[in-house]
Amino acid sequence: MDPQLTEVTQLFGRFKAAFIRNDFGTCTNLLSQLKVLLTKFPSLPPSFQQTPNAVEELTIARDIYEHAVVLSVKTEDQDAFERDFFQLKPYYTDTCGIIPPSPQEYPILGLNLLRLLVQNRIAEFHTELELLPPSALENPCIKHAVELEQSFMEGAYNRVLSARLTVPHETYVYFMDLLAKTVRDEIAGCSEKAYDYLSINDAKKILMFSSDQELSEYITEEHPGWEIKDGCVFFQKAKESQPCKEIPSLQLINQTLSYARELERIV
């Protein structure tokens, strides 16, 4: 066996042991060493050289990055998640035919979809979704994320929150918690427009706060425009667009002049 490959395998073994012990400090250290070692494999993306060890190298590299992604979720580091995920992605898209698909593929792709949803990057969410074959949409992990996005777009926020109870994988909980925060902000934005006022109890229920204290803290922090009086929350109304009273003369003159100029050119 190739000495480099042996070294990586051994190091990865230690990483996995630390990973199971939830010793994240050691994991991060080992991971950076592993990533440096991986750069010496010629068969990895983007070069994809045909070496005799290609299959083993690709498999172990993919495994390492999969662990890296999960590790970044556990350490709650979204930037690291994004970096590791992009390193992992070529293994899913460009290695079919070289190594068999990973059982972790859909859970991790679903996780990424969830992350994009939490960060409100809906365009990227859909771009990623298009890459999946129709059969993948049946996978519980992917389906979960897709249904969440749908409920989110519709405004059925209750369904988004209840989905936390049916997460397909333990790593999803972290993002679901983040999503709850995004949902609260959305609800607040909607309530502002949809209601004149709400009683404090109703507001608490709608915005999912357990105490009046939390509610008033949230209001002073996020929406200082709202007013609490007589046991009700009053929302500040944005001014409605008034019917126009005066003629926008300058704009009209400009437009008319440009028509005249254009017509002159035609005639």
Binding site: Y157, G189, C190, K193, Y195
Partner: peptide, 22 residues
């Protein structure tokens, strides 16, 4: 509750011109 939040979102996005009386 679903209907309420859906209507609220539709109002915010300007799809319907209405208010909710909670």
């Amino acid at each position: 509750a679903d209907a309420e939040s859906i209507v609220a979102k539709a109002i915010r996005d300007g799809a319907v011109d209405a208010m909710i009386d909670h």
